[in-house]
């Protein structure tokens, strides 16, 4: 498996607080990489650095594209989505509540439908390639509506959807930007067991479709089931890195999680105490 994103000594400091301290890991092409760790470990900060919401204090974020590497650190967020094709979802769902589900998916394709301002203005007078682009965008939107099972509700406002469906829609919306790397911030939070299972299936489908996934998740069931690779952070430092089985038995991870009582790690925790 080739590497897609190399995070090299990524450091993010907020004043006196070291949120992320020289973290290095790799996200490999065609894999689901999970980023786990206790609350406040710096997972979301790593995400915000990768997706351009924060400018890292130091470190490198090299995205390996077919035509050479792209340095993400310090690049504005919208350009990262546009040029590097890195998409993200949010811990607290950020949908366009007052717009319909279909509109949400079309806004995500803004850059393909309207490559620049001039073409956007020409479209007012029916000029340019707008019509064809819009049709393609609609097709992609329908494809993802179908994938997440929201076709029947396409014309309803996003804010009227139940919580689980809003999570799925947010993933579909991110996928409409045609990403190479999809960053998901706690996609299973607040989902019931059946919905988590559906989510696992959806994420595996996305991975098999060729889009690599970087995932922050607290639900160990989901993490252990779908991840190919797990990176563990604690207090801004990477404490472990490996396959789910390796992580399950790593004493450092167990120490960091001890007392948190996460189901998936219970067995491992016992093993750690014995050691």
């Amino acid at each position: 498996m080739t590497s897609l994103l190399t995070v090299d000594a990524l450091t993010m400091r907020f004043g006196g607080l070291m949120a992320v301290d020289a973290v290095s890991f790799e996200v490999r092409q065609g894999e689901i990489t999970a980023l786990i760790g206790p609350n406040g470990a710096g997972k979301t900060t790593v995400f915000n650095c990768i997706t351009g919401f924060y400018r890292p204090t130091s470190g490198k974020l090299a995205l390996h594209m077919p035509d050479g590497d792209l340095e993400l650190a310090g690049m504005p967020g919208h350009i990262i989505t546009r040029r590097a094709h890195v998409a993200r979802t949010f811990q607290n769902i950020r949908l366009f509540q007052g717009m319909t589900i279909l509109e949400n998916l079309l806004v995500a394709q803004h850059n393909t439908v309207m490559p620049n301002v001039a073409s956007g203005l020409l479209a007012v007078f029916g000029l340019g390639r707008y019509r064809g682009l819009e049709a393609t965008a609609l097709d992609l939107a329908k494809h993802w509506l179908d994938k997440v099972g929201l076709m029947a509700r396409a014309d309803e406002p996003a804010g009227s959807l139940p919580y689980g469906a809003q999570r799925r829609l947010e993933i579909a919306r991110a996928m409409c930007t045609r990403p190479r790397l999809l960053c998901l911030d706690e996609p299973a939070a607040g989902l019931n067991p059946r919905e988590s299972d559906e989510l696992s299936v959806l994420l595996r489908g996305i991975r098999d479709g060729g889009c690599s996934i970087l995932l922050i998740e607290h639900d160990m069931g989901v993490v252990m089931r779908i991840s190919d690779h797990v990176v563990v952070l604690d207090h801004g430092k990477k404490i472990s890195d490996g396959t789910p089985e390796h992580i399950r038995n790593d004493p450092h991870v167990i120490a960091a999680y001890l007392g948190e009582g996460d189901e998936g790690l219970d067995d491992a925790a016992n093993a750690g105490e014995a050691a």
């Binding site: 997706t51 919401f53 967020g77 919208h78 350009i79 990262i80 989505t81 546009r82 998409a87 993200r88 949010f90 950020r94 949908l95 366009f96 509540q97 007052g98 717009m99 509109e103 079309l106 806004v107 995500a108 803004h110 850059n111 439908v113 309207m114 301002v117 956007g120 203005l121 479209a123 707008y130 819009e134 919306r173 991110a174 930007t177």
Partner: peptide, 20 residues
């Protein structure tokens, strides 16, 4: 698309940025 982007901006600016 331009008008839709305006309305999306009104709804949630941060999400807009994340969508490029």
């Amino acid at each position: 698309p331009l008008g839709r982007a305006w309305e999306a901006l009104r709804e949630d600016e941060i999400a807009c940025r994340a969508l490029g």
